[in-house]
Design a protein around this nucleic acid. Structure first.
Length: 596
RNA sequence: GCCCUCGUAGCUCAACGGAUAGAGUGCUGGUCUUCGGAACCAGUGAUGGGGGUUCGAUUCCCUCCGGGGGCACCA
């Protein structure tokens, strides 16, 4: 198949079947309906897979513009499309009108060519060049110093990790940054809490065993005390002010907090099995860049004083006021974010920054983006994007530190792994490397649970659902891959490479055709997932693909098939299916395993 | 008070303005002389209420009801 050109915003040069049809439709529109050449038609899977592979609503839209009936419009479009197709790929078995839509169906022989290509070296499902090496930064898993990560951080981590993998797969020069929260008033509170702890006879070594947890305890206890003793908050603010001014004792304590936390974060990253970060610059890294931002703001006359604080008024955009410097002279998160943006764009040359942060910060990012735009740090819209996600709650209500209902990242993984090991002991006690497998299955369950939901939805965390490995779950996908691996292992040799789809005379089983048709849509799923930074689209696709594989697996035999060509076809089919699952899971940060 | 978001089967979630609203789970009943049953097949069951725009609305607009979140010195 030749290279197809299709311009849909950022996506150029993807050779997918869907883009091929899209190209035909646009060409016909341009030559036959030049007045409506820019019509925004749809091209998607039809509601019923018996209708065909793809469907477009173009006749309905054209009918409205031209005053004709959809059926009539379709009748003139279809021969033109078929004619173009004959000159180009000769892919269509059928293009027919139904209820104002045109449904397209590919020749089985054509799909066999696609199948051969998927299995051939350098063929389908390889990383693409679509991104053209454009530099994009993805920021996620923003840990805070002295705060252990919990299920909420897992969501940011796995969504960000998946988006990074997808962008890289599509040929972007995507880089990651954790943007550690290592600055702010909370460190004043922590400093005073720690000093109090030492003064009352505590030892530094008591902290050192598990620093993040111990420091967090001190912090939590103090914030609880603040409710009754507001003077403690003032004390904390004073300690932070000292820190900002460079007080030696506070500075060295802070450096210690940051250092021990950084070690722990790396452990958590490894525990979660997400990609290493390209950058791990904390908020404090940008401190010396804040004066520049303030100067820029002043120069443009955006900065005003109000009740002792320095603010930017965004009331005209209904965004309220943004505080840059507090009345006590301390800087804000917002100002540090602006300094960060300036650095990332002017120094690091990123052309786009994605913030994978929960939706509660939508207002904050709107303010930041608006100010960055007024300051001229970004050109046009779309350089800065809040990839927001809904937050997690428990069946009994919101996750609350005070009620102790927080599920820590560590606990989540350990519990799930324990449960997985139990299941393995029941189902496959002789499995080698049980612990390693249990870890991969557990991570699959956890990551898939997070990734399979539309990221914008709020979700309810339920242990019994995370630990349910049947039905739509990560382990279900892994299991399909295990079955495929099992067959290929028994085959004892690599799948026949020369298979080129010569099984014309065979009546295909319905499950075979369904699997083959679904397989050809892998690139669509990746493209759609990338377009809106929605990994769950890949989850849905892989789940449907695995379902189709399992139906196929129940319906026909592969190794016991006597007809040699048919057997080779089936081997090629499952080999390609395995490739799709393995690569697809890879884009989700989930390991495809051979046995479980 | 203002702003943002979300209300879809009993439960947890899908659905570029399109065709008969899909899954999982639950429950009921089946499949098996396993290439691994963490499977397959069938049945059950839903768009909060009311208007509007449209050839067509879960999707867009208005309104009411009900959740969640955010609104100057937290990040």
């Amino acid at each position: 198949m030749r290279e197809l050109w299709y311009n849909n915003g950022e996506f150029m040069k993807r050779n997918t079947l869907r883009n091929y049809i899209q190209e035909l439709l646009i060409d016909v529109l341009k030559s036959d309906f030049p007045l409506h050449a820019n019509l925004d038609f749809s091209l998607a899977e039809p509601p019923n897979r018996d209708f065909g592979d793809y469907a477009t609503n173009l006749p309905l839209l054209l009918a409205k513009r031209t005053g004709n009936k959809p059926k009539e419009v379709a009748k003139t479009l279809i021969p033109r499309l078929q004619g173009l197709d004959r000159d180009r790929e000769a892919a269509f078995l059928e293009a027919s009108e139904r209820a104002g839509f045109i449904n397209f169906r590919f020749y089985p022989e054509y799909l066999l060519k696609i199948l051969a290509q998927i299995n051939a070296d350098g063929g389908g499902f390889r990383a693409s060049q679509a991104g053209g090496g454009k530099k994009i930064l993805v920021e996620y898993f923003q840990n805070n110093v002295a705060k252990p990560p919990h299920v909420g951080h897992v969501r940011s981590a796995v969504i960000g990790d998946s988006i990074l993998r997808i962008l890289r797969y599509l040929g972007y020069a995507a880089e990651s940054d954790t943007h550690i929260g290592d600055w702010g008033t909370q460190f004043g509170i922590l400093l005073s809490a720690y000093k109090e702890f030492i003064n009352s006879g505590g030892e530094r070594t008591q902290i050192a065993s598990s620093p993040i947890e111990e420091l967090n305890k001190l912090y939590v206890v103090t914030t609880q005390k603040i409710e009754d003793q507001p003077e403690l908050l003032e004390k904390g603010k004073q300690e932070f002010a000292k820190l900002e001014k460079g007080d030696t004792e506070n500075r060295s304590l802070w450096e210690w907090f940051v250092a021990v936390s950084a070690e722990d974060f790396e452990k958590y990253r490894v525990l979660l099995d997400i990609l290493p970060f390209d950058h791990a610059l904390g908020e404090s890294f940008y401190l010396d860049k804040m004066p520049e931002v303030l100067a820029d703001t002043k120069k443009l006359g955006l900065l005003t004083e109000s009740e002792g604080a320095q603010i930017v008024n965004l009331e005209d955009k209904k965004l309220g006021v943004a505080i840059m410097v507090k009345s006590d002279g301390a800087t804000t998160y917002l100002l540090r974010d602006l300094a960060t943006i300036k650095h990332r764009i002017s120094r690091q040359k990123f052309s786009k920054i994605l913030y994978v942060v929960d939706s509660r910060q939508a207002h904050h990012f709107q303010q930041v983006f608006e100010i960055a735009s007024r300051l001229g740090y970004v050109k046009g819209s779309g350089m800065l994007l809040h990839v927001d996600f809904g937050f997690m709650s428990l069946p009994e209500g919101a996750i609350s530190t005070r009620k102790g209902s927080v599920v820590s990242l560590k606990n989540l993984i350990e519990e799930t792994q324990k449960r997985t090991l139990q299941i393995i002991e029941e189902k496959n006690p002789s499995l080698p490397k049980k612990n390693m497998v249990a870890r991969q299955v557990a991570l699959a369950a956890i990551k898939y649970f997070d990734l399979s939901h539309n990221r914008k939805s709020d979700i309810v965390f339920r242990w019994d659902e995370v630990l349910d490995f049947e039905g739509n779950s990560g382990p279900y996908l892994q299991y399909a891959y295990v079955r495929i691996s099992g067959i290929l292992r028994k085959l004892g040799q690599p799948p026949p490479a020369q298979f080129a789809g010569r099984v014309k005379k065979i009546a295909f089983d319905q499950t075979e055709m369904r699997l083959l048709r679904k397989l050809a849509k892998f690139p669509d799923a990746v493209e759609d997932a990338a377009a809106d930074y929605m990994p769950h689209i890949i989850c849905t696709y892989l789940y449907e693909l695995s379902q189709d594989f399992n139906s196929f697996y129940e319906a026909v035999w592969v190794l016991k098939e006597k007809d040699k060509e048919l057997k080779n076809f089936r081997i090629a089919l499952i080999a390609a299916c395995g490739t799709a699952i393995q690569r697809g899971l890879g884009l989700l940060g989930i390991e495809a395993i051979q046995e479980m």
